[in-house]
Design a protein around this nucleic acid. Structure first.
Lengths: 153, 153
DNA sequence: TATTGTTAGTTACAAAATCAACTACTACGC
DNA sequence: GCGTAGTAGTTGATTTTGTAACTAACAATA
């Protein structure tokens, strides 16, 4: 009788966790966001949740907290707190909808717009810098694969 | 006189948050680790920090907390607390170095080894599933690019 | 117009991450 | 040896996140 019906160990050992995609993705994400993080942190005292909200508003204009949550895949409590802090610091203003008084429309203030444009330009430069490691075809493929993995339609 | 000497808005608007590498990497990392997270969480009651320590020890054998921190890019307090919990649950044992009594050598117990092998096999299957979206050449390129971005030598 | 269900957003409390200070120890310079 | 500086790892205080329960408002139905 064979004493081992499971896969042989040799087949198991060729898997290196150092190549595990969730691990690699995480390391790359953390490393690649460090330098940019320092900018919005030091220059505007923002947290990651806050710059994400700011960016979505800068890109898409007036939004509600719910819409931001859907687009950014952020939980509503995260959005709520980020909006609160951005409102306190006068980066955005909230106005109740007249028809449906549950919803709030959020708009960037001029200060918010300015911060958005500033950070957007930093982000653009930073992205170029990251992409410089690769050919443009490689980067395009990378983005497409990441979108697929992230479940972005 | 021209009234606008800065770059025209059209050139600025080509920035898409959805293409910003740190953002994409983060979304992909988060989405792709969700399903796997449930396994080590539900099956072993581990936190992400703990699973990371376990997996580094499984890969490289005996290590010190400092080495784990360097390889996994985890802050020493995170490592310290993860090691503490893994030791409490008898997944690893700590032994003081005889020469330098500040350092502790960490080794997986048989239970720790078993958990490591189990999770590694789950990870392997999961990795295959993620990679199925792409050709094998694409996946190899993706891993190489992620390693580069992560600063893994 | 009461009843039930649903939605937008907030709040409360627990879990976890972060940062600074701390203990115990080693190593260097004198 | 003695003082100073540096290192491995821990602890405590503060901040941030996650989960659930909550408030206020709307909508459908009877």
């Amino acid at each position: 009788m064979t004493e081992n019906l499971t896969k042989p160990d040799a087949a198991e050992d060729d898997f290196e966790l150092a190549n595990f995609l969730p691990f690699l993705l995480n390391q790359a994400a953390e490393e690649s966001s460090l330098a940019f993080q320092n900018v919005y942190k030091n220059r505007y005292g923002m947290l990651r949740t806050e710059w994400r909200v700011l960016f979505h508003m800068g890109m898409y204009g007036q939004m509600t907290a719910k819409e931001i949550g859907q687009r950014a895949k952020m939980h509503k409590t995260k959005v709520s707190r980020a909006v609160q802090r951005l409102a306190e610091r006068r980066f955005l203003i909230r106005t109740r909808d007249a028809q449906d008084r549950r919803v709030e429309h959020l708009d960037l203030t001029p200060a918010g717009e300015a911060a958005y444009r500033d950070l957007r330009s930093v982000a653009r430069d930073y992205d170029v810098k990251l992409a410089r490691h690769f050919t443009s075809g490689e980067v395009a493929l990378l983005r497409a694969m990441l979108r697929q993995l992230a479940g972005i339609r």
